[in-house]
Simulated scan of single mutants.
Amino acid sequence: MPSHASALVDREDLRQQVDGRLRSVLAEQADVLARISTDAEPLVDAWTQMLVGGKRLRAAFAYWSWRAHGGRPGTAEATALVGVGAALELFQAAALFHDDVMDRSDTRRGIPTAHRTFAARHRDSGWSGDADQFGLSSAILLGDLSLVASEDEFLRAVHEMPSAQTDPARRLFTQMRTEVTVGQYLDMHAQMLPWTDDFDADERRAREVVRSKSARYSVESPILLGAALAGATTRQMEVCSAVGLPLGEAFQLRDDLLGAFGDPATTGKPAGDDLREGKRTLLVVRAMRALDPGARTRLASLLGAPDLTAADVDEMQQTIRATGAPEEVETLIETLSDSALSALDASGLDGSAAETLTALALAAVQRAA
């Protein structure tokens, strides 16, 4: 994350407070698991690794939305919002553990993914059975642990707040988790479908995946959660969606470009990672639409193919660039961002907090990792 974005998350000591809360959760979980069995210790190590170094953008969107809707620092409610931010980070960790399994990813943030780490532990220890299956199963269970912890942390954070604020927030938190789970399925389902000439349907599916799997839980839901916990009106919540959904789409479309063309040294993933995984992103759909049948067949044969070489990835990148699809996605990112920022500018929210929210929005779509 760019240094200016990191500085935004550091405002009002938010990152340090969220990180502190996460350390407390992990310490509590370490005690629980140790009482069950000392053999569970590697789970805590892997869980800690996943939670270290996150951008904390979701926590920041929730907190600064709460501030922009009248929340005040240094209060008990501010402490509650830190807990909500930690719950969002725990939920993201759960989603990432599961996502890495489904995508068969080798690395995240430049280090081996959890399922690869546990598979290596199995092999190095000379255990019996299938090492890869052990790794996959361990990562799935880690995701489940983090999902349960996210629920516990959310409920603990808001339990003393008025029900008029916490009831809608709880519904939002539940809805967010359902949307991400369904979005994961839709993403997987889209990759299984054969390519046809129905690019309108492909684009519809790609946009549905963007909205359900990422846009809402990355940006819209955190902004709505912060607003709800500040007691926002129905109209204010509508404005939050008008800001959060297009901004979340732009956020994920930026991820799609980075997944195809990002610098591995910055993203922490192999070059062309989304192309290696065969992701049916809007970028790829737009490229396929622009290609002639022969080139389309060639690109389809490479997307997600096992044992791709660096030359194969480079060929896909060059093919997609030549179609102009990256520029089309950049234009869409700009259009969506402008829509979100216009809605935020017209919202009439509290000045300095709204300025921070605006700066966070820009950082989310202008990042390089």
Score class of each variant (00 low, 15 high):
R204Q: 09
A311C: 00
A80Y: 03
M288I: 03
L257Q: 06
A93N: 04
L229M: 03
D103K: 07
T75W: 09
F173W: 05
G70N: 09
I320V: 13
R276W: 14
S6Y: 03
F61R: 01
R104W: 06
V82A: 06
E249F: 09
R171N: 05
R11E: 03
L193P: 00
P42D: 01
V44T: 13
Q133T: 11
A242G: 14
A311F: 07
S163Q: 13
L291Y: 07
L344G: 07
L308D: 02
T331P: 01
E249C: 15
W66V: 02
R15S: 08
G110V: 08
R35L: 12
Q29R: 15
G70K: 12
L172V: 03
D338H: 13
D312R: 05
R298V: 05
L299V: 05
L145C: 11
I333T: 04
T107V: 12
A30Q: 14
D350S: 15
D292S: 13
D187W: 04
L145M: 12
M192T: 13
Q16T: 12
T196F: 08
M50F: 12
A5R: 00
A271V: 12
A232D: 01
Q92T: 04
L303K: 12
G129L: 04
R109A: 03
E277M: 04
Q236G: 15
L155E: 11
L336H: 06
D273I: 02
P222N: 08
V32Y: 13
T107K: 08
L90W: 02
R156G: 08
T174I: 07
Q92L: 14
A5N: 00
G278W: 09
A215V: 05
A120P: 02
A139R: 11
A7S: 12
L193N: 05
G278Y: 10
R298W: 03
H69N: 13
G126D: 00
D307V: 04
S218K: 05
G20N: 00
E77T: 10
V52I: 14
E328N: 06
A120L: 14
Q49S: 15
M102T: 00
K213I: 01
D39A: 15
A68G: 07
G324W: 10
K279T: 01
